[in-house]
Design a binder for these strands. Structure first.
Lengths: 152, 152
DNA sequence: ACTAGTGTTATAGTTAACTATAACAGTGTA
DNA sequence: TACACTGTTATAGTTAACTATAACACTAGT
């Protein structure tokens, strides 16, 4: 979670993508609160408005609901919605370009698997662990986030 | 070649990537001229300065040489240079993210191969043909580019 | 009521990307 | 020389992304 920003895409979109990844990985489940705008802004040393913009994207996509004074919460059905939408989006918009690049560079499946494995072992431990242990306490990603129960 | 721009990355970088792809695919060979700044600008209805910026990146990477009054030409060794650099860059910077996304979405090799095949048949015919027929006339990508011989 | 935590809005400034328009500079050919 | 191509630079304006600073609005706990 401490990796910095990639200059090939706006921060607010990378932020949106991170939350999406956490939902897909099961780190954030339905009803869970997102780490607060101010917390994220402070932790990543980014402007609160930038965080808000990323979160607003999620609201627009019906993935997240905002409750003033309480926080932002994962909607019911968010993960299913994502599994449909993101698959199609990825296959249509990103994978063709990536696939062409792989072919152009003559990369072998071995090289690709090696590179993927290398990264996973060094970066994704936390996310993998959280995803694999299903019913464990699902603390959100912020440092010490609020964790109040939404009153339905 | 008539596909429009992707708003997820600046045009000048997409332009740079297209030329890189053409070099890797063998569409542009050492000594070949790039389509002229003005031609590309007109064909894609983009500002000449934007095209120039993309081309300048290639000059900075030693892939292309600029000759005032003549045009811009692929350097010798450009393809080898690319095969080394781009492989490393792709495996380190892009593939890990893509690989994680694939895993998250639970995409199968079949789905990925299908999507890749679908796209290739509809988009890349021209590039593939040019790459496969090796010694054919290698006309550059512009509409009717200059095609002068550089005097070494 | 007070306080500390939420999301939200307002104001204003910087930078990068892109644009339009125009001119300058070098090369080859008729 | 004149012309038609090349790359290059100058000037200036728009938009999107990001920033800093501050205030407003709402909720829960004490």
């Amino acid at each position: 979670m401490d990796r910095e920003w990639n200059d090939s895409q706006p921060i607010y979109r990378q932020l949106r993508d991170r939350v999406v990844a956490m939902i897909l990985d099961g780190v954030l489940k339905e009803g869970d609160p997102l780490p607060s705008v101010r917390n994220v802004a402070a932790e990543y040393r980014v402007n609160p408005l930038t965080v808000l913009k990323g979160y607003q994207q999620l609201v627009d996509e019906q993935l997240v609901e905002s409750r003033r004074g309480l926080g932002m919460f994962i909607n019911t059905g968010a993960r299913d919605l994502l599994l449909r939408g993101e698959r199609q989006k990825f296959l249509a918009e990103e994978w063709p370009r990536v696939s062409a690049t792989i072919q152009r560079l003559g990369l072998t499946p071995e090289e690709l698997l090696d590179a993927a494995a290398t990264r996973r072992s060094s970066l994704d431990e936390a996310a993998s662990d959280a995803a694999e242990s299903d019913a464990a306490e699902s603390n959100a990603a912020g440092s010490e986030a609020a964790k109040k129960e939404p009153k339905s």
